[in-house]
Design a protein around this nucleic acid. Structure first.
Lengths: 184, 184
DNA sequence: GGAATATATTTCAAGCCTAAAATATTGAAC
DNA sequence: GTTCAATATTTTAGGCTTGAAATATATTCC
């Protein structure tokens, strides 16, 4: 996951950018024209993307390690349980993949394992024999409750350096990235 | 990846309060007002984490799809090539895993495949027969150059809604998350 | 020099992930 | 009612990812 081009192979063989003026000439007509290619703003956006990625990885890696050591649970499993916790009446497989934004096949595998652990159950949906409704078991509810509690503390610690104002700024800026998407 | 506890079924055992956060007081009214969850600030931090995750996934998923369709390349491969592009004299396997923050075994597999594709080569390091120096091949340089160029445009598009001020804010806030880490 | 320890890399098992193909069922058009 | 497209899920193939164990080489300490 990620991508840091940061400084593309400029000076060598690739034609790439006229070379003279740093401000792109704005090749006008051609839709395939290099557009924003070397602009300072594009570079800054690239920097933001790399930072975003680094921050996400940093936090995810901490959370994954803790979840594993303390609860022998993975992040994907935690995510699924979390979604199910908010929908005690159950969710369909497709609801899960939509909410978590992962592929259908992926959800199938995660649910298989959670079923094997006795944390969730699959039930048929009446009126539609194609669909499956997935629910937390009582054990799943308890397990997730314990984990969620600690998880919140971990996140709080990881972002301890950010006060209310910082957080508000972040929410505002980050919310404009997926634009339109809104879980729940 | 990710994690949305959002509303854990707490109310039972563990005592709360995030150890590290000095600002985490303000739980408002009665002791009971602390409710089934942590302080409002902790909740807000959780919200930020979820947004961060959503934004990252959104961008990553777009970039991955484009990279695949246009260049038949994956993001991890792109990342490795990117690191190597910035170090034409080559990097050791361990340098790569450090820079990309992924495990050693992971890098081994990615490099194996890139070698198979003729985009990088492994050479022994003299003075240390344990180590391997990995370098881009000429074909790798060209391939990465092409991809990096488009990749920058894609990122530019994905963050088109953010102006210089927004970007500066984001960089400032995000930089304080990994705290201390700094690639290159 | 030789033993213990540390470093660099690979291998391994298990799980995550996607895109695409395969199944099964539903719903709509005819 | 049969055909055809859409929907819900699983399966499959290939690749990514981790943490831990295994190898091989270096270094340090005696």
């Amino acid at each position: 996951m990620s991508s840091h081009p940061a400084k593309q192979a400029n000076g060598s063989h690739l034609a790439k950018q006229a070379g003279g003026s740093p401000l792109a000439k704005q090749a006008g007509g051609s839709p395939l024209a290099k557009q924003a290619s070397g602009s300072p703003l594009a570079k800054q956006r690239l920097r933001v993307w790399l930072r975003l990625l680094a921050a996400q990885r940093e936090m995810e890696s901490h959370l994954r390690a803790r979840l594993r050591k303390r609860f022998d649970c993975t992040l994907p499993r935690f995510d699924v349980l979390s979604a199910l916790e908010r929908h005690r009446d159950g969710l369909r497989m497709s609801d899960l993949s939509t909410k978590l934004k992962v592929s259908n096949g992926n959800v199938t595998g995660i649910i298989d394992r959670l079923v094997g652990d006795g944390m969730v159950v699959r039930a048929s949906v009446d009126g539609d024999r194609r669909a499956m409704r997935v629910r937390l078991t009582p054990a799943g509810v308890i397990w997730f409750g314990d984990m969620a509690h600690e998880h919140e503390i971990w996140v709080d610690e990881l972002l301890a350096g950010h006060d209310a104002g910082d957080l508000e700024q972040l929410i505002a800026q980050l919310s404009r990235i997926g634009e339109g998407e809104n879980d729940e």
